[in-house]
Simulated assay, not measured.
Amino acid sequence: MPDYIYSDDSIVVVSKPAGLLSVPGRGEDKQDCLWRRVQQRFPTARIVHRLDQATSGLLILALSAETHRNLSIQFQQRIPTKRYQAIIAGVPQQDSGRIELPLRCDWDNRPRQIVDSIDGKPAITDWSCIETYQDRSRVHLSPITGRSHQLRVHMQAMGHPIVGDQFYACEPFISASDRLLLHAEHLGVRHPISGEWMDFDSSCPF
C-alpha cells in the first residue's frame, strides 16, 4: 500500500512503492495501481502526475476538479520542485552538472525512450553527487522538465545508468538490485487553494 504523507480537503500526498503502476495499464493484470488504491480511502482522488512503475516516491493527487486543474497548470508551468535520489553505475568525473538532451519514444522498443536531437522534445536534468563507492555513486537528480524515463535515459547517456534499470543499464548493474534504485524523495508545490508553498519528503528506502 502507498505511504500516506499528507492530506486535507483538497489534496493527498503519498509515497508510491516500487513496482506499482501509477495509473491502470492495458489488460486485466494491470488494473491494480496507486490511483485506485488511493481512491479506496479518498474516492474523489485524481492523478496529477505519474512515476514510472519501477520508481518509488512522492506523488500528489487532487481531490476535486478545481484542485486538479490548479495542480495540472502548476506542473505544466514547471512550478513544483522535484528531487530524486538514485544510485548510478560508476563514479562521475564531476561533482555536479546539467544534462540537456532531447528525448522521444523509441517506437520500435516501447516504452523505451531515446535521445534524438532532431525529433526529440527538450529535456533538462540537474544532478549532483552525494557519495561515491567503489563502482557506483549516490546522486541527487532534479528534473527541470518531466519527460517519460527522463532521469533514466539521461543517466544512461552520461555513461552512468541507474542501478537495477532493466531498460537502460547493463550487467552487472541490472542484477545488482532487485529494483530500480530511483526514489522521488522531495516534492514542493503551491497549495491549490491557499497558495501556500508546501514541501514534502519521503526517506530514500535504499
Rank of each mutant, 00 (worst) to 15 (best):
V48D: 01
W127V: 09
L51G: 01
Q166R: 11
D52H: 06
D116W: 00
A184P: 02
D32V: 13
A184V: 00
G97V: 02
D3F: 14
A176Y: 04
S137L: 13
R50T: 06
D201G: 13
S203V: 14
I88P: 07
S142Q: 10
V139Q: 03
S148M: 15
T81C: 05
G25R: 12
W35D: 09
I99Y: 10
L59E: 05
E28D: 14
G195M: 12
A176H: 05
L103R: 00
I11D: 06
G146I: 00
C105Q: 09
A54G: 06
K121W: 06
F206T: 01
G164K: 00
G19T: 08
S117P: 05
L61R: 04
C105P: 08
S96E: 14
C170E: 11
S177F: 01
D8R: 13
A184Y: 00
T145H: 10
R179I: 12
A157Y: 03
T44R: 14
E185V: 12
Q85K: 15
T145M: 08
F42N: 08
L21W: 08
K121E: 11
P111H: 12
Q40F: 07
R50H: 08
D119R: 14
Y133S: 08
H191G: 05
Q39D: 09
L21N: 08
N109M: 06
S64I: 12
G27K: 13
S15M: 11
V139P: 05
W35N: 06
A86V: 13
M198C: 10
D135P: 02
R147N: 10
R152Y: 03
Q76G: 11
Q53L: 11
R110S: 12
Q93L: 14
D135E: 14
Q39K: 15
L63W: 07
A18H: 10
I193A: 11
L21E: 07
I11Q: 02
E66N: 14
